[in-house]
Design a binder for these strands. Structure first.
Lengths: 158, 158
DNA sequence: TCGTTTCCTTGACTCATTCAAAAGAAGCGT
DNA sequence: ACGCTTCTTTTGAATGAGTCAAGGAAACGA
């Protein structure tokens, strides 16, 4: 909708300029799209970007998302059963609440867990860099409407 | 290798009989394959099953894995960037260590985190059922050989 | 403005996973 | 043991997110 807000363009451009990446209108648009649609999948980003740049190729969006992820301007999350989703909020080690029924994703801060969650009981010799916590459950709407676990993709259910 | 161990077949059959599912040789073989290859992806399971049942269709394996997951005999995990992987260890709320370089997956018990990890700071009204923790890092081998993050699939790297 | 380097477009392609219809096996009651 | 019903498996095709590769276009330093 208001994707082409000048202030946002500037902010996105500035973020890009702080990396060694070239500032292209495609990347700026992708960065905006990710900010405007938290936890959006690639398809949503493509559609959002095309509101301001109707001619972008899907490849450009895929490339931008990868590159932006690599330099740390966006984060990619992929809860089980979901395609890749992207978010602008980075560096604060927050976690996610995922609704099993409607796939809604919500951010949660890990105020309690910060330290404990980063320390597994034994690390098997691993060099641990990051802990990712995903809470699975039902969002308020789905819980209210009595939604249970959705079909998990088996034709002949039990 | 020793996939057709009678003891194992019995155990797998018994587990199946405790559900309302029919006990078929395909399902028994899938259950064994998952136990014999912890964190195996579907392709590995298919190959393993075909050692004892050369004629199984991939569809049967997909269906079995789905059904077994649904009744809780196996668990499906899908770390970002990975295809679906399955494991037999269930119900003990253990977590995973994933190597960013070689994708090795190792189980870890969450001795410290049990309670804290299940309690996010605010639940946004969600009905939380489960917390899933994934630790990302480098396995001993990759850390030793100085492996850094692998290419993440962008042709024009920074 | 020019040239170099990086990025985008185009279009084909891969591969995990799913769909659908028909043939085949499990388990039930007799 | 036999047949019936229902659940499973096979077969073969389709879907769709994501990737590969080559050439044209744009960014940016000089």
């Amino acid at each position: 909708m208001n994707g082409t807000n000048q202030e946002h363009v500037d902010e996105a451009g500035a973020a890009l300029r702080q990396t060694s990446l070239r500032v292209t209108k495609q990347r700026v648009a992708v960065l905006e799209a990710v900010r405007d649609h938290p936890h959006a999948d690639t398809d949503t980003v493509i559609r959002s970007v095309r509101e301001s740049l109707p001619a972008v190729s899907h490849q450009a969006v895929y490339d931008s998302l990868h590159t932006l992820t690599e330099v740390g301007l966006v984060r990619c999350i992929q809860p089980s059963g979901s395609v890749a989703r992207y978010e602008r909020r980075i560096g604060d080690n927050h976690h996610h609440l995922v609704c099993r029924s409607c796939n809604l994703i919500v951010d949660v801060d890990c105020t309690i867990g910060q330290a404990p969650c980063l320390t597994p009981s034994h690390d098997a010799g691993f060099l641990i860099e990051q802990a990712e916590v995903t809470f699975w459950g039902l969002c308020p709407d789905c819980a209210d409407s009595g939604a249970e676990r959705p079909e998990v993709g088996s034709r002949s259910a039990v």
